[in-house]
């Protein structure tokens, strides 16, 4: 324990700024992935264990688009939309076949896709490490805030994640479509009886969830190494976030993602060797005290 170091950091403005920004950098990307996972679970009642692999192919789609077009915007868009469409197809052709069946069946379908997608990436891109590269627009020195530094790319990343999160939340809380989605989460039969095509709705929601994972992957492509199997660690972390925040709750995912981000940022100062243990402990604690998570509603 180095709690003195932690106290020392908290009493200095520059250190606090740096570590809070670190928490946001880690947390916001995690939030994008976890909110997709949570949204899919909330509406469809399935856990997309292949979500980490969707994040991976988002990064690879962006990588390819950037190589072809040299446009960062197109790279992000193709990562997001590519995975969104992929998710819809995946839902229609595979996931929808195991709705209402044993959770193990859903797990296996996802497991199959984790294996297949990892191998496909290895076949198409090779086993070596890849990096998309930082677009010229962000080749700026870090921005100074209160004595701390924040790289401009991270400012952009946090900003765009926040905008996406806000749009998602508004879309679900305030629009008619959001009402339908929320209704379908509670009583799909009734929604179907009201003449709404739930099949299409499910595919669409799954697509949105996948799009979020793909966007996160594309945003990570300039700064994180692309390898087959890169989805694994993000899957575990976003899974922890979803469980802590509450399966199905977007706001819960947001709070939990920031919680994890800040725990890691300040934990690296105060209890560096126990950061991972802390995350598992937090997850276990939430499951024991309130299994449905901070903001989740209990499943029957």
């Amino acid at each position: 324990m180095e709690l003195q170091a932690l106290a020392g950091c908290l009493s200095s403005v520059s250190c606090t700024v740096m570590q809070v920004s670190t928490g946001l950098i880690i947390g916001m990307l995690l939030f994008l992935v976890a909110s997709g996972l949570s949204l899919i679970f909330g509406v469809l009642g399935v856990i997309n264990f292949a979500h980490g692999s969707f994040y991976m192919i988002g990064a690879y789609f962006a990588f390819s688009a950037y190589q072809l077009t040299d446009s960062f915007t197109l790279a992000i868009l193709s990562g997001a939309l590519g995975v969104g469409i992929f998710g819809m197809v995946f839902e229609r052709l595979f996931m929808s076949k195991v709705y209402g069946r044993d959770v193990l069946m859903q797990l296996l379908v996802c497991y199959a896709f984790i294996l297949i997608l990892d191998d496909m990436v290895k076949i198409l891109y090779g086993a070596e490490y890849k990096l998309m590269g930082m677009p010229q627009a962000f080749a700026l020195p870090p921005i100074q805030v209160g004595g701390g530094f924040i790289p401009s790319y991270y400012v952009f990343m946090i900003g765009i994640s926040a905008v996406i999160g806000l749009v998602l939340w508004l879309g679900i809380a305030k629009t008619r479509f959001g009402k339908v989605v929320r209704a379908a989460a509670i009583n799909p039969t009734m929604v179907g009886a009201l003449g709404i095509n739930t099949t299409l709705l499910y595919a669409f929601v799954f697509g949105i969830g996948s799009l979020l994972a793909g966007t996160a992957g594309a945003l990570a492509a300039p700064i994180r190494t692309l390898t087959p199997g890169m989805g694994l660690s993000i899957l575990i972390e976003s899974f922890i976030v979803t469980v802590i925040g509450g399966m199905g709750s977007i706001v819960g995912a947001f709070i939990a993602a920031l919680l994890i981000g800040l725990t890691r940022a300040f934990g690296s100062m105060g209890f560096p060797l126990f950061v991972d243990g802390m995350m598992f402990a937090m997850m276990a604690l939430v499951l024991i005290v309130k299994p449905s998570g901070l903001l989740g509603r209990p499943v029957h």
Binding site: F94, K97, V98, M105, L108, V109, Y111, A112, F113, I114, L115, I116, D118, D119, M120, K122, I123
Partner: peptide, 15 residues
């Protein structure tokens, strides 16, 4: 490419 093969076998069994 055992991941590919194994994945497809799983899908055949499950679906």
């Amino acid at each position: 490419h055992h991941g590919l093969v194994l994945g497809i076998v799983i899908l055949v069994f499950v679906l």
